[in-house]
Design a protein around this nucleic acid. Structure first.
Lengths: 340, 340
DNA sequence: ATAACAAATGTCATCGATGTCATAATGCGG
DNA sequence: CCGCATTATGACATCGATGACATTTGTTAT
């Protein structure tokens, strides 16, 4: 590493002058400045950001731990958080994280030190990964969670009521006359999976209907591929459902594909509804009825929580939880049951 | 900001001891350690990463400038780069960047200093944005480009031969008997758009066929929505094409949707091919024939170029360009022309 | 030519944490 | 209770850059 002193020596000036060339070029005589610039080029000098920041007062970026950046859900939050950070003039540093990695603790430590990160954001499913949260508390790190309606007593969080949303979409299907409704569940490790599933059951209970038979629940994992298998299973039932509620839009897109392959028309023969309002929900034919979450709003709230951490946690001694609203978006993939 | 000295004062020990509690807890008597930990908790102390790194030797994260994180293309590279960085033990900090922002220069400066970034990665279309590249050279920043086969004399780059790939996919359609082939172009600002378009023409020329009539070129912008309009235009022609080559998969998905709406079967009535092998290419029905790029390989190469910047640029005085291979992936959306 | 002032450059201390080395506290065998 | 080996702790310098202030150089008016 070449330092400002190396440059100053080569250019025959003091370090301070080199510093000025970088920060207040006008205060340096043109001839000198050019010498310094030449020296910098020769040595391929680039200033040490740590030193600069130490002097100028620290800035730290917000850290995001991502389990699977290819997952649509995480990638959408990732994007929303980027936007929110930009709006707030902050930077975000991303680390891939998998709880199965044997050295995850060391990796988190490294992230907190080398990654120059003080505040972390955890998305599902990391927001449910207790060993990680314990480690963070031990290290005194700050974290904000984005979670499916599970309140964590130690970290502020932004949550969405997955159960209520699932219930709402099932009630919508009821209103169209559907009574045999299949549900493809999400990944078993996500707490959202349980919540959405129980939202379904809640809807039946609330309406006084008998709970759906077990074969109407097919297990998925939020991924397109597994969605295909699940859809095949449901549509091969002796008495197939007239509507399928997939735990997310990728899965719903898979259902649509399987239905097409089987010559079923949507929503004529089968209504398909998803969850998340992912881009794919508008990019498949027919476009999917789904539940929209206000990603950007949630991201903004998270950044705000990070920003105001001091006042919050230190002063009040309790953590805040924000419940964000959701919305049913009706598109082309759902319709009334055809008589007959 | 509380420092290590504040903690040491409160705990009644020296700063060095506090430091030890953090870095080599075993070398501190249990009683002392607990006092120190208590003081840290009371003061909500978190160590200053800049100072630590200054002492320990600098680490700097790689910066990625993203124009539009929602763009499938950029988001795929984003993900691939994250993976490659993780493999290489590096961190990546992301900044949203738009050339239209009036203060983009100041933003870049801030990113290079506050963002603690020394090396930058530029994707299309930023890799073509000359004012930015000029600024980076002036600042002595290091950048590596991911670009569509345009060699930049100042920065190392990883490129893909878009023209050849486009030519290849058209030749494949020729081999299926198609001669009226529509092309939906990409965003006019992307150099890839011109390259893919000229690859199309090259294929006709090479085969000694007359070049396609202008109405067979519809203008798109790589986005699903514009793709719908373009597809409507092409399919409304008096003599509609038997195949459509969309400049990317999102657009191809739009073509498929429009075709379905019009009751056309794919690939019976219309062959549809895309470009990129995006996730959506496998998530629509029928799955799309497309061109696959080795994203992860490219990302690894980029990280490697960043890593070896010193040896490369300083010593040899010229920049390296890596051409990466592409591959035609044949799926369900393309088939022979039906006689008749 | 010189005082008076502005411009250009340099010296030194500092940001917060840790390495080096010195010193103080403790333990243990005799 | 002493001497010596450990263990625990502290004082000080250091990382690379910049702020405050000092000093040198250059310019202008008289």
């Amino acid at each position: 590493m070449t330092t400002i002193y190396d440059v100053s020596k080569l250019a025959g000036v003091s370090a301070k002058t080199v510093s000025r060339v970088l920060n207040e070029p006008d205060r340096v005589k043109t001839a000198t400045r050019e010498q310094v610039l030449a020296a910098m080029k020769t040595l391929d000098y680039s200033p040490n950001a740590s030193a600069r920041q130490l002097r100028l007062g620290g800035f730290s970026s917000i850290g995001l731990l991502l389990e699977d950046p290819a997952s649509g859900y995480q990638s959408r939050f990732h994007q929303a958080l980027l936007t929110a950070c930009m709006e707030a003039g902050k930077y975000m540093t991303v680390e891939l994280f998998e709880g199965v990695m044997p050295d995850w603790q060391a990796r988190v430590d490294r992230f907190l030190t080398e990654g120059r990160v003080r505040d972390l954001i955890l998305l599902p499913t990391l927001c449910d990964f207790t060993p990680l949260k314990d480690l963070l508390r031990e290290r005194g790190a700050r974290a904000v969670l984005i979670a499916p309606s599970v309140h964590d007593p130690h970290f502020p969080s932004v949550v969405m009521d997955d159960r209520a949303a699932a219930r709402q979409i099932i009630e919508y299907l009821f209103s169209l006359g559907h009574t045999r409704i299949g549900h493809i569940t999400g990944h078993p490790d996500h707490s959202a999976t349980i919540l959405r599933r129980s939202g379904v059951i809640e809807a039946y209970d609330a309406r006084g209907l008998p709970r759906p038979k077990p074969e109407l629940f097919a297990s998925g994992d939020f991924m397109f591929k597994k969605g295909i298998e699940a859809a095949e299973t449901l549509l091969s039932l002796p008495e197939p459902p007239t509507a399928i509620f997939a735990a997310n839009d990728e899965t719903a897109a898979a259902v649509a594909m399987v239905a097409h392959r089987r010559g079923l028309s949507i929503p004529g023969d089968l209504s398909v509804v998803g969850f998340d309002d992912a881009p794919i929900a508008s990019a498949v034919w027919p476009q999917l009825t789904t539940i929209a979450q206000p990603y950007l709003e949630m991201a903004r709230k998270v950044v705000h929580l990070v920003d105001t951490w001091d006042q919050q946690s230190t002063q009040s001694g309790f953590v805040s939880t924000y419940l964000t609203p959701h919305e049913l978006v009706v598109r082309e993939s759902s319709g009334p049951v055809l008589k007959g």
